[in-house]
């Protein structure tokens, strides 16, 4: 069927080509090259070289904007990980750029002028994480109300919840405390694993 190796091979080649070009043109920007657990290549970039790399990737065929999101690594390291996912229509391939932003003063350059579709995504990340995108035309809250205080998806923003009442009986534990967060009882695996990259 159409999962032919030719197509997948072409996709891998396209990704490799872009990564080679970025490494040649902007060797300082690339900090690390990893593979996500799902198999996509991810380049860990420095915030300064981010725009140049994205522009180059766009010129080299990754011209469809796909996703922009963030994750808060509080308690592990004082950084947000911001992910940019670009898509190449021909051959179909995905490329992930990953940037680490300090939690104290999170600022990134905006890419709205390169990809107009990034507009809402940057606003969403600003809304939920408080990461400011410099050069964004209208960096306001998108999903939360305008007067909202705080950025809800940060790990230090508490989850508001109330016990689930069942037939008049109110349990002592909150829903998220019924099974508390815990690490696997193997000491080597629990705390020292490779947290930044994928499995590889």
């Amino acid at each position: 069927m159409d999962a032919n190796p030719e197509q997948t091979g072409g996709a891998t080649e396209a990704v490799e080509r872009v990564i080679r070009a970025i490494r040649e043109r902007f060797p300082d920007a690339v900090m690390e090259e990893t593979t996500l657990a799902s198999g996509w290549k991810a380049l860990v970039l420095s915030p300064k070289g981010l725009r140049d790399c994205i522009r180059l990737a766009k010129e080299l065929g990754f011209r469809a904007f796909y996703d922009l999101t963030a994750a808060d690594y509080w308690e592990i390291e004082p950084y947000f990980h911001v992910l940019y996912v670009l898509h190449s229509p021909d051959p179909p391939a995905k490329l992930v750029f990953q940037v680490r932003v300090p939690r104290e003063d999170p600022v990134l350059p905006s890419i709205v002028d390169l990809f107009p579709g990034a507009n809402w995504y940057e606003r969403e990340v600003y809304d939920f994480y408080g990461i400011r995108f410099e050069g964004h035309p209208n960096l306001t809250r998108l999903i939360m109300p305008d007067e909202w205080i705080g950025h809800p998806l940060r790990k230090d923003y508490p989850l508001t919840e109330e016990p689930v009442q069942f037939k008049g009986h109110i349990p002592e534990k909150l829903p998220s405390e019924v099974i508390p967060k815990q690490y696997e009882p193997y000491p080597d695996r629990a705390r020292d694993g490779d947290r930044s990259g994928g499995k590889g």
């Binding site: 996500l36 657990a37 690490y183 696997e184 695996r189 694993g193 490779d194 994928g198």
Partner: peptide, 9 residues
């Protein structure tokens, strides 16, 4: 328990 890492599907 899930091993540490990132996955995008």
């Amino acid at each position: 328990f899930v091993p540490p890492g990132k996955s995008y599907v």
